[in-house]
Design a protein around this nucleic acid. Structure first.
Length: 201
DNA sequence: TTACTAATAGCGTTTACTTCA
DNA sequence: CATGAAGTAAACGCTATTAGT
């Protein structure tokens, strides 16, 4: 579906809803909205904007608007440019898509929420992998420490294939394979930087 | 039944405006 | 009259939840 001019009066955006009147309530006093009169779903009154259904009877069952592909595409495009809209942008977009500004607002709100959820899930996955990697390294280091402990304390003879080096200044043992610093008692003291392979996950 | 998502409710924060000492 | 503090309402965004498809 092509993007239609704002005053297009013949859109396939209208969604017929059995049992729902197509005559919309007034457009929150804004003076516009004539072009939206045919959009049944899009003209569903929201509770804070319209009380017409509140007096005199029960509200009609809530029908859910389905955005068209084109509406979704344009909203996504807009979202890529900016995750929030100022009132003018919101109004313009609403006019363009033949939706109410409130619907644009809600869409952006939900879109931001989805974005954040996705980001959180990705971070969660990353942290899980990092945790797994750290656990594995922790086990390896413990084994390494055990090996070092089983060596008899004596002259600094290095038997391990891992090349151990003694820091001349702080007298801590380090290995070439492990960037972790271990103390004389075998405890892992610190690591200067994060493993790069984990950061790349 | 489940996933997706539009819509709603409620709350917190910010901002503009008003009142008053 | 000018000024700053306090109160208020509106606007906006966020999170949680509901409910239609």
């Amino acid at each position: 579906m092509a993007i239609l001019p704002e005053n297009s009066s013949n859109l396939d955006l209208s969604i017929s809803v059995p049992g729902f009147s197509s005559s919309p309530p007034s457009d929150e006093g804004s003076g516009r909205g004539r072009e939206q009169l045919k959009l049944d779903m899009n003209r569903l009154p929201s509770s804070e904007e319209d009380e017409e259904f509140s007096h005199g009877g029960s509200a009609p069952p809530r029908k859910k608007l389905r955005l068209t592909r084109e509406q979704s595409r344009l909203l996504e495009d807009s979202f890529r440019q900016n995750h929030t809209l100022n009132p003018k942008q919101k109004e313009a977009l609403a006019k363009h898509l033949m939706l109410r500004p409130r619907q644009i607002e809600v869409w952006f709100q939900n879109r931001r929420a989805r974005s954040k959820l996705k980001q959180t899930e990705m971070e969660c996955e990353y942290l899980k992998r990092w945790f797994g990697s750290l656990t594995e390294q922790n086990h390896r280091l413990h084994r390494e420490v055990e090996e070092l402990r089983t060596m008899k304390v004596g002259p600094p003879t290095v038997t391990s294939t891992a090349s151990l080096t003694m820091c001349p200044r702080c007298e801590r043992v380090t290995t070439a394979t492990s960037p972790y610093v271990v103390d004389g008692g075998g405890g892992v003291l610190a690591k200067k930087t994060l493993p790069t392979q984990e950061r790349e996950h």
